[in-house]
Design a protein around this nucleic acid. Sequence first.
DNA 1: GTGGTCTAGACCACC
DNA 2: GTGGTCTAGACCACA
Lengths: 124, 124, 124, 124
Amino acid sequence: MITFNDKQSIYLQIADWVCEQVLTGKYKAGDKISSVRELGSELEVNPNTVMRSYDYLQQLDIIVNRRGIGFFVSDDAEQKIRKIQLEHFIQNELPPFFKTMNLLGISLKDVESYYQQWKKKDSE
Amino acid sequence: MITFNDKQSIYLQIADWVCEQVLTGKYKAGDKISSVRELGSELEVNPNTVMRSYDYLQQLDIIVNRRGIGFFVSDDAEQKIRKIQLEHFIQNELPPFFKTMNLLGISLKDVESYYQQWKKKDSE
Amino acid sequence: MITFNDKQSIYLQIADWVCEQVLTGKYKAGDKISSVRELGSELEVNPNTVMRSYDYLQQLDIIVNRRGIGFFVSDDAEQKIRKIQLEHFIQNELPPFFKTMNLLGISLKDVESYYQQWKKKDSE
Amino acid sequence: MITFNDKQSIYLQIADWVCEQVLTGKYKAGDKISSVRELGSELEVNPNTVMRSYDYLQQLDIIVNRRGIGFFVSDDAEQKIRKIQLEHFIQNELPPFFKTMNLLGISLKDVESYYQQWKKKDSE
DNA sequence: GTGGTCTAGACCACC
DNA sequence: GTGGTCTAGACCACA
């Protein structure tokens, strides 16, 4: 379901994955998300780790907890995620991305052609 | 000389910085680079940390050691760096970059306009 | 458990020892190996030194790390080790060995008789 | 003239090379060997380093110094070298060599075939 | 002067 | 509990 990356902590990768489900519409506002135990066993990860992801998402008001019932996608989750990720993308991802492009002599046209290739692969 | 970032370990940032010096031509093939002690005191960092960077670069054949004399930029350092970084960029940076673009609904034109802004800032 | 040799750095001797455990089947693919602290106190060596060994083995894909859990013998560790050591033996050990044999006038028969003696000692 | 190896100190490699010249008869008992400066510039090495080699060989009574004239191969140099190297070979080289053979499953017959190959190459 | 190794001890994030 | 990084300081061999 997720293939984990070694360079980022697992709980953040799980949180990102949940956000992705929201952005792609697989999780909608008000939906109940998998329980900590479910997701833990599914991903072969310690439930504590999943709990940490949910804690993190809860702090960002992306999910809410109803005691004894489970975690639910909050009403404005999608907007929140969009806002947070867009900000992060522009401030923290684009500048080093552009810097690397410059250093390696990669033009926007090059990026565009890679983009076309990637879209093909992705749609397969 | 370098302003360190909290998200990556110092020794990797030093290694990256050395690579940047090579790519921008400030260090050329055969040049002696600063000794671990020199660079350590210059960056206000422990010499062991610099040593770790140099170790790392040596494994990649980007720098070589001459016993008792110091570290030198290897002959094909620039090619090596270009190859490694280009590969990394295409395989590990572009795909998640495109994925995020898609998720957030950012087009290549958007990226281009950010690029123009960034170039202005950079040239100031 | 290991008696260290002065001529090679400790961290490399530890790495070699781990490889030996794999080659002799004491560690099998997927096994968790001792934590850096465990092995450090067992060998009366600083944990950092063990860490350096593990770092080295990890670069060779002989062991892998699971975040927060420990180091594990990688699936193809034995093959990797065999390949690396065989290559090293043939390219870097045999030629000077033969050269010395020639210079000192030692024949293969001589070597064989020493071999028989060594096997006796070893089996005691 | 010599291609230096990174794993051993240069002065020992130079000393080994001198011994080799004696064993192969290129230097004979009583011969004057290259001066420290000559050999230093020839090998592109600091004269101090060559001096250290000569010091080392002098301690072993393999060469002798005649003040103001130079270093000379001592009368029993060849025997001395043979004795020292043979001892070293049997005590320090053979055992780990046999151990590696065992671990990697290499037989004496394998070694013999490699030996034949090596002799061919060497005689080219 | 150069690197190379090791120790001791600290702090951190993560599982 | 796990590894990962960094510091401070020491000692060594080498050029």
